[in-house]
Structures are given as C-alpha cells and as structure tokens.
C-alpha cells in the first residue's frame, strides 16, 4: 500500500497535514507504525492507540482507530486499564522521551514489569519540543536546552536498557532514517504477546538541532543514519561500532502475559465454584 492509500485507510485525512515542524522525524515514525499495522493486517476496530502529552502524543489524533489522548506521562496507565478491561484489543502506546521516562517513568517500569500485552513506541527526540526545547532525560550530557543554558549536567537514560531491565519481553531501537527496520521492529513488538518497547529515535531540528548547532533537518537525518549501527553488524565488526549507537532488536524473550495470567485466576475460581 502506498502512502496515499495508507492515509485513506488508516488516517483521519481531514486532520492532516499534522502540526509537527518541517523536518521533524515524528511523521516518519507515525508512518512506520501504520505500515506495521497494515503489514500485519490487524483489524482497525480492535486497535486502540493511547498517547500522553507532548509532540509525539499528538499522533493519536491523526490515526483512525480507537484513540485515547491522555494526560502527561499517564498513557501506559490508561492503556493498562483498557487492556485489562478488554484483552481482545491490540493496545499501542505512542509516547515521547519526556512523557515515558520523566513524568511517566514510574508507569513505564511497572508496565514493563507486568509484561502486559502493550506495544510502546517511544518517539525519542531528546528534548521537550511542545514546550519549546527544555532538556529531557535523554538529552545528552553537555548539550543545551532552554532550561540547560550552561549545558546539561544530568546523565541520560538509555530507554531500551531501562525497559529491558524493568521486564519488557521485546526491546528494540531504530531511527527515523531506518524507517523500514523501524516498521519491522514495531511488527515484531505487536506480535510479541507481552510488553514490547520500541525506541524510535526522532529528530527535532526546530529546538534541539538549533540549540545544539546540529544542523538543519537534513543534517539531523544524516546523523540518524551515520551515528547508528545495527547490533548484529556491531557484533561481527566491533571496529565499525566505534563511537556509534546500537540499534536493532536487543531483546526477544517471550514470557507469560499479564492478562492471560489473570484469566487463569478467573478460570480457577470458576472451576472452584462449579465444584463447590
């Protein structure tokens, strides 16, 4: 399906063009997510897209499914309620680096820990874009933000390591440049019956790029190409991996899913009351 057909099938065309700035990677990531949904031939009526607050979280409004644009950081908690109440729904959470690892950090680690069947795609642009360029938990140490005028002294989160350590059963990273790989990771994440976390590295030329002299949209897109190396290549050719950031599938160890475990309790109680 080409873009035009995808837009007609899965987007609210009357809401486009989207609000994101010229050259923002978010549109590419949203496109990749929808391609993954199309490739898997999922029933759109059974898909629920939940988002929080921030640039990334505006994605839900453009996508023609059951969509829920929640409060800042809380998308995963709302999504947990939706999924528990109706496990037949395919729940995807679209969030940002600030949304899921700062204000929503607690929800991220606990949703991962439960291994509930939710696929999270974190649009990581290393900055708070919606509010105008403040540093986030993924802003590199030393980089600038409007609230880090002398350089950021915070250490950064590695979102994938965080999700993996917390118990996610599928973890991967790709960038807006590697949109095809991103699509594959999202497909795999959706197919994993459990908590999947995909870090989609984006770019914010308007705030992060300008503040840190990282160039324009094109320059930043080149960085999303050149600064990253697939983990499989890096394992074979460590010499090529020097000073590069790893991407690809980091972790894929399916485990028993949360709502299924809960269903076992329901079934056990049903059996007990039947025999009683």
């Amino acid at each position: 399906m080409n873009t035009s057909a995808l837009v007609k099938e899965y987007f609210r065309e009357d809401k486009l063009p989207h609000i994101w700035c010229p050259g923002c990677g978010h549109g590419i990531i949203m496109h990749a997510v929808v391609r993954a949904i199309d490739n898997l031939k999922l029933d759109p009526e059974k898909i629920c897209i939940v988002s929080g607050i921030g640039c990334s979280s505006r994605a839900s409004g453009y996508m023609n499914f059951n969509t829920l644009h929640t409060t800042h950081g809380r998308a995963l908690a709302f999504a947990t309620g939706v999924k528990m109440a109706n496990p037949s729904l395919e729940v995807l959470v679209l969030t940002g680096d600030g949304d899921c690892s700062a204000i929503g950090g607690n929800h991220l680690i606990h949703t991962a820990r439960r291994n509930i069947d939710i696929t999270t795609i974190a649009f990581n642009n290393n900055i708070y874009g919606m509010t105008g360029g403040q540093y986030s938990p993924t802003t590199a140490t030393g980089d600038f933000g409007t609230t880090a005028p002398y350089g950021n002294i915070d250490k950064t989160f590695d979102l994938c390591n965080l999700a993996k350590a917390a118990g996610a059963t599928y973890v991967g990273r790709s960038t807006a440049y590697y949109a095809k790989q991103l699509t594959t990771l999202v497909e795999n994440g959706i197919q994993n019956k459990g908590f999947s976390f995909i870090e989609a590295v984006s770019s914010c030329p308007t705030y992060y790029g300008r503040k840190n002299k990282k160039g324009d949209a094109v320059e930043m897109m080149k960085s999303l190409k050149d600064d990253y190396i697939d983990i499989k290549i890096a394992e074979k050719r460590p010499d090529l991996a020097q000073s590069k950031i790893l991407m690809g599938e980091f972790y894929n160890k399916p485990d028993e899913e949360y709502t299924e475990k809960y269903q076992k309790i329901i079934d056990m109680l049903k059996k007990e009351s039947y025999h009683a």
Partner: peptide, 14 residues
Amino acid sequence: CELRCPDFAIYLKE
C-alpha cells in the same frame, strides 16, 4: 523519498 517524508507529501503512484 516516500519512506522518509515526514509529511506524507511524496509517494510512488501506480
């Protein structure tokens, strides 16, 4: 171009 257009503005048409 289609793969990386952030705005769904360029694509291949049959």
